[in-house]
Amino acid sequence: MKTVNTPCPEECSDCCALTYPPQGFCRRCLSENMTPVNLPASGNIMAVTQIQHSFEDEIKPILPLTVASVDMGTGCVVFTLATDDSIQAGAAVSVDRRIWPFGNLLTAVKEQP
């Protein structure tokens, strides 16, 4: 598996909609005036799974991996890894990029109350 670097979402300069993964145009208004932006600072966990089977040999030694879907609240749902396997649906999380053995990937970290 080649190392991956998660792309930034794009914000539409015309209607402000966020598109992720980026595609060079806005899926709401079809504008091509798109700007790479950082993800919103926080989101909410929709669901969490523990991946126990991977198609990639490089990943198998570090299984299980905790993966979450996160609603970033702006029409943008992202998949993330999580370092804390106690993370649960509904939790507020911050999402940033962290280095994993196979890439620089979105990672959800539980926000402190």
Partner: peptide, 29 residues
């Protein structure tokens, strides 16, 4: 797909089962 390759597969390379695990978990919740 491009979206799957960039935004889903790197997160454990579990294929569609990863996506449906999250969908199933949400349905259970």
């Amino acid at each position: 797909s491009v979206a799957s390759r960039d935004g889903v597969y790197p997160y454990g390379a579990g294929g569609p089962t990863s996506v449906f695990a999250l969908l199933t978990k949400q349905y259970m919740q």
